[in-house]
């Protein structure tokens, strides 16, 4: 089989990835492969495949700045990025960009992840946008979450944190008591 990039030399390098059912593969000759850096670079665990695919424009999942409902002149107040910057590089400028350009990014994110939402770890200080203060169950959930954090803190011998979390748990338990009584 021939190199998919130049179509001239036999392909000796093969890469495949699959993100939520969307398959991509890349067959390259040594010459085109080395364009991305040394041949060793390909095995490099530190360069993500996405950047490899991005270095060959025909495989880059394009962010379409035209279909975006964000006006072309929108500029991120935090980092100065524009819709065109993001579409061109496939990278955002700062955390705020994800809000400012959410319409622009939505179809791209849907293509990458479908309807999936984050289910992994959260920053220790993260508070959900709608704090579950009224519902009894959510308070219990929050207490359970804090108990887990406390156990982790104790295991790691971060006793000051453990004490702070304990105080927070006590506060929630008191609040809960007050609400139900």
């Amino acid at each position: 089989m021939l190199c998919e990039h130049c179509g001239k030399n036999p392909a000796t390098h093969f890469y495949s990835q699959n993100i939520n059912g969307q398959e991509q593969s890349l067959y390259l000759c040594s010459e085109c492969a080395s364009k991305h850096g040394s041949l060793f670079g390909f095995l490099d665990p530190l360069s993500p495949l996405s950047s490899l695919f991005a270095s060959f424009p025909e495989f880059t999942p394009l962010i379409d700045s035209h279909t975006a409902s964000a006006p072309a002149e929108t500029v991120c107040p935090e980092c100065g990025a524009t819709a065109a910057d993001i579409a061109k590089t496939g990278q955002v400028g700062c955390a705020r960009c994800y809000q400012i350009f959410s319409n622009l990014l939505a179809p791209y994110l849907a293509k990458l992840y479908g309807k999936a939402v984050h289910t992994g770890r959260k920053p220790l200080s993260y508070k959900p946008s709608q704090p579950p203060v009224n519902s009894h169950n959510s308070v219990n959930e929050e207490i359970n979450r804090l108990l887990r954090l406390q156990a982790e803190a104790i295991r790691q011998e971060r006793f000051e944190d453990a004490a702070r979390i304990r105080d927070e748990i006590n506060r929630l338990r008191q609040d809960k008591g007050g609400n139900t009584l």
Binding site: I19, S50, G90, Q91, A95, Y98, L109, Y113, H118, G120
Partner: peptide
């Protein structure tokens, strides 16, 4: 960090965890 997208990264392919 965002509740839906997880840890926010420069390249959207690294979002989530």
């Amino acid at each position: 960090f965002s509740e839906k997208l997880g840890y926010l990264t420069r390249c959207p392919t690294n979002l989530g965890t």
